[in-house]
Nucleic acid binder design. Structure first.
Lengths: 193, 193
DNA sequence: CTGATTTTTTGATAAATGTCAAAGGAAAAG
DNA sequence: CTTTTCCTTTGACATTTATCAAAAAATCAG
């Protein structure tokens, strides 16, 4: 694959916050593998330990697990974000999280092991890693406080406000699970407005 | 203050995971200020932008905010962990999180600005930062999945299982808020057992 | 276009949790 | 020791949300 094909929008989106040197950039790109996947493709199937980090250039993924026979959607990841099973990647302990693509997607994968080598060798890549994880953490704080003491209706209205696009791309069954409510409850909330 | 007084248990607890050079260690210690505070002391009062990171050598803190006139306890932090308002620290945008001490505590504070300077100068300190944030994120994942689809009773039993000490140190009103339920509901859950 | 499949809505009812008020208990202060 | 304050429990009732079943609507495959 030609170097010139390896343009990743990611560097543009973080460049205001993290300076990544040309050498680091090309080191990163050398461990990133770009692939096209169809809708429904499972990046991390059940039973696998997630040992890669995925950058979504185009498309949409969801992370989910099964509880009491039902699929619980933990998270959606869209263009220009990373996804992986964080607990599995860093602890190397299998969890039951699966990651599947909800749309035809362009995904850059990198092995977590190789990424860790880059962390050793390039300070600015480590910074990038810290930056990504820190941002993720701030997002989780928001999410947590939503679930802790907001009603289902407030959570739904928040989503409509902050992430209207997602509603157009994802079926309501998955959205309801993400919000921590049943599909029926979501339907009733929507019909109130 | 003598260097020899600046022993921090933290380095011991992370040393299996992150190697920190003697130089980095002393650079870190040079920006850390150790203080004793009484029970009830407010590290981050309402209206302040949290611009410090606090390491708890001894004691216990809680992070809380006010919603609809009620205090919501977002988090507890115990010995050998860090606390700060992550959203405020990294975005520099005021949030309404306060941090108070629930016990007489020994706290090491460091200014976030100075920490960022150390991140620039010492790769291994940046690694340490990434490590701390990543662990925090994994904990948040657990917490989130608890709130997303577990009943109040399951959440309480989880806490008893995973963090029995906390129950002995913190009043039930704060615990219930942390679990996302009312004090009355918690009381009833407890009386069932 | 048409039948099959999936998604969404609606209804009836049950379970979980919240709210308000008050009573008991425990801990702190004098 | 006694009083005051704070913490916890209990009761009655309201509200939110889940569950189960079925109908309606939308999407997909041929």
């Amino acid at each position: 694959m030609l170097k010139t094909e390896k343009k990743v929008s990611f560097f543009d989106s973080v460049s205001p916050f993290v300076k990544v040197s040309p050498q680091s950039k090309s080191a990163l790109l050398s461990v990133m593998v770009k692939e096209h996947f169809p809708k429904g493709h499972v990046l991390v199937p059940l039973g696998n330990i997630c040992r890669h980090v995925y950058y979504i250039e185009k498309g949409l993924s969801r992370t989910f697990y099964i509880k009491d026979g039902k699929e619980i959607t933990e998270n959606f990841c869209i263009e220009n974000t990373f996804t992986c099973s964080m607990p599995a990647s860093i602890t190397n302990i299998p969890d039951n999280r699966q990651i599947e693509l909800l749309e035809a997607s362009i995904i850059w994968s990198m092995s977590y092991t190789e990424l860790e080598k880059l962390y050793d060798d390039y300070h600015d890549i480590e910074r990038l890693g810290r930056f990504v994880v820190t941002n993720e953490l701030v997002g989780m704080h928001q999410r947590l406080s939503d679930l802790q003491f907001r009603s289902a209706e407030e959570r739904y209205n928040n989503l409509v406000q902050n992430n209207p696009t997602l509603l157009q791309r994802v079926s309501l069954g998955l959205i309801s699970s993400y919000l921590g409510i049943t599909q029926e409850t979501l339907s009733r909330i929507r019909s109130k407005n």
